[in-house]
């Protein structure tokens, strides 16, 4: 089989020589007042992945996390001298240190896993961006106040507008901006249905142990379930797939409960994750 092109190979090689540092920090925006739907999903996914790998890390919240990141997107981790952003590069970085969740998967299953991760990244992530930035109701009520909350007037107005233009341009190029809200909800439902079919009655997508696919699905679905939005259609859609809700509950229970055991540790000011049992209180 022909080999893949090597990019960043030297830095990856250097990283492999050191073990996982003790003071790894995960950076994201302020959870309570600033972070938005798409970013929250990605941050939760990375946190879930690191906890599944039992890699120690602390959570650091900064108002300028987005600008600190080398790729411009959150979350990113600082492990020793390395700063790595977004789930895929972090998975590769961790794999280079010999830690992986997919060692017992064969190549077909690995390909399937990658395909489902693409599904979630293409459909759910873009749907979240659409709802946050293109849908007028959500943009006015939720996104605008939250995004600019850490900046003084008037730059909060400029920055929010600048970010919106950037996101809308990207969605237009991908063909999402032209969709109506109904079409977006249908896409989300279609995606969740495909995920639900694949998960079937298992605990996790590939057997009894979780993989990065489970972390990614957990990040997105948990966020959709627990973020209060003006229109809760997304939460309703996700809730209609009971095995997906069960997956989220299992991941939350096993990896996010503030227990003393295991490698998970909480950071400063970690927000209280709305427990899934409290979902009954959210408006349907």
């Amino acid at each position: 089989m022909p080999s893949v092109l090597l990019t960043d190979s030297i830095s990856v090689e250097l990283g492999a020589q050191e073990p996982w540092p003790n003071d790894v920090k995960l950076f994201q925006q302020y959870e309570v007042e600033q972070i938005l739907l798409p970013d929250n999903a990605n941050c939760l996914a990375v946190q879930a992945f690191l906890k599944m790998c039992q890699l120690n890390h602390t959570l650091e919240m900064r108002g300028n996390a987005e600008h600190m990141s080398p790729s411009g997107r959150v979350p990113f981790i600082k492990a020793g001298a390395f700063v790595v952003a977004e789930l895929d590069p972090i998975v590769a970085f961790v794999a280079n240190k010999g830690v992986t969740l997919t060692e017992r998967l064969d190549t077909t299953q690995k390909a399937d896993m990658r395909a489902y991760m693409s599904l979630v990244s293409n459909v759910l992530a873009n749907a979240e961006l659409y709802v946050s930035w293109v849908d007028p109701a959500t943009y006015e009520d939720v996104t605008k106040p939250r995004y600019g909350s850490v900046y003084p007037w008037p730059i909060n107005v400029f920055l929010t507008r600048q970010k919106r233009n950037q996101v809308v341009r990207r969605l237009r190029v991908l063909g999402w901006q032209q969709k109506t809200l109904e079409e977006v909800y249908n896409e989300v439902e279609h995606c969740c249905s495909a995920l639900s079919e694949r998960l079937d009655r298992q605990d996790f997508f590939f057997g009894k142990r979780p993989t990065e696919l489970d972390a990614l699905v957990f990040g997105h679905l948990f966020t959709l379930l627990t973020t209060p939005l003006p229109d809760n259609r997304l939460a309703t859609i996700v809730r209609s797939f009971s095995n997906l809700v069960k997956l989220c509950q299992v991941v939350e229970r096993d990896f996010f409960e503030k227990t003393n055991g295991g490698g998970s540790s909480s950071g400063n000011g970690e927000g209280d994750y709305d427990k899934l049992e409290d979902l009954n209180q959210l408006p349907m």
Binding site: D112, R114, A115, S118, N122, H190, S193, A194, D200
Partner: peptide
């Protein structure tokens, strides 16, 4: 299950 794989692989190719 295979139908859902079809959906997933379409997205993989797209990405």
């Amino acid at each position: 299950k295979q139908c859902s794989e079809v959906v997933a692989y379409e997205q993989l190719l797209l990405e």
